[in-house]
Nucleic acid binder design. Sequence first.
DNA 1: CATTAATTGAGACTTTATCTCAATAGTGTA
DNA 2: TACACTATTGAGATAAAGTCTCAATTAATG
Lengths: 134, 134
Amino acid sequence: MNSKDERPTKFRRSTSTRDTIMKAIIDWPGHFSAEELSGSLPSVSRASVFRTLAALQESTLICRVLVDGGTTRYRFGGGQHHHHLVCLECGEIQDIPDCDADEFSRRIASRHGYTIASHQLELYGYCSNCKTLD
Amino acid sequence: MNSKDERPTKFRRSTSTRDTIMKAIIDWPGHFSAEELSGSLPSVSRASVFRTLAALQESTLICRVLVDGGTTRYRFGGGQHHHHLVCLECGEIQDIPDCDADEFSRRIASRHGYTIASHQLELYGYCSNCKTLD
DNA sequence: CATTAATTGAGACTTTATCTCAATAGTGTA
DNA sequence: TACACTATTGAGATAAAGTCTCAATTAATG
C-alpha cells in the first residue's frame, strides 16, 4: 500500500531532465497522454516523465482529463479548478471555465454528512463540428 | 482501434456461467472491483467476468464508480443515473440519489455548442465517521 | 437430432503506470 | 574549489486492469 519510491510533493532541485520535460509540456499544443509525451522525449526515461507528471498534478500546474473509457490526458496550465467537455467523436477537449459544481457539491455533502475534499466532473458529448456530421 | 471481440449490447442466450456471475453480483454486499468479483468465482474465467460486466454497464444494470486515483468499482442496481460520494479514508461509497448535474450540464453544453451524451461526476471527501477521527 | 451462432475458457497480449536500485548530479558548506 | 549529502535519474522489472484470439462448448431453433 505504501510507496517506497516517494513521489515528490515539490521539486527540490532544478535539473536539465526536468527542464526538458517542462518545456515539452508547456509547448504541447492541446492535450497529451503520458505516453505521447514520453514518446516525444526519447532522451528522457519514462519513469521521469511519469514522476514529473505526478508532481505537477499535486501542484495543479497541469490539469488532468479523464476521458470516457478510462484514458487520461493532460494539459499544461488550466490554472484554477475547472472541468471539461470531451467530444466523443473527434476527441477534442474544451475547458469549462467556471465550476458550478462547488455549490452543488457542498449541498450534497451536508445532506450526507460528508466533508468534501474534491470532485471530478467531466461532460461527454459531441462538439459543434461533429454533431452536424451525422 | 476496432475490437474484433465484439462486446454484446445485450445477452442473447442464458447460460449457467452468466447465472453464476449474476448471482455473485447481486449478492455482493456493497461495491466490488472486477478483480474481486473474478477472484470470488474461480470456476469462471476472467474474460467472462469482464465481458459480463461490460454488457451490464450498457444496460445500466450495474453502476460504475470511478474512485480517485483511477480504480473502478461496481455495484448491482443503482437503477437510474446517479453519482457517488467516496470516502477517501475508509473507501465507503454512498449513492447520491438525485442528479442535479443534468440541468447544469445542459447549460454548459449550449454555451459551448456541445450536445451532451453523458457526464461523469464523483465527489471525494470524508464520511461522518472518518472526519471525526482526525 | 442437426445446424447455427452465441458464449466460454485459457492464456497471450496490451496499456498505463509504479517500483527497484545503482549511477549521476545539484546544492550548501567548509 | 572540493566535499558530502541526498535528490534525481535511467533502465528494466513488475504490477494492475483489461482486451484479444481462437478453438471448444453449448443454447436455441427448426
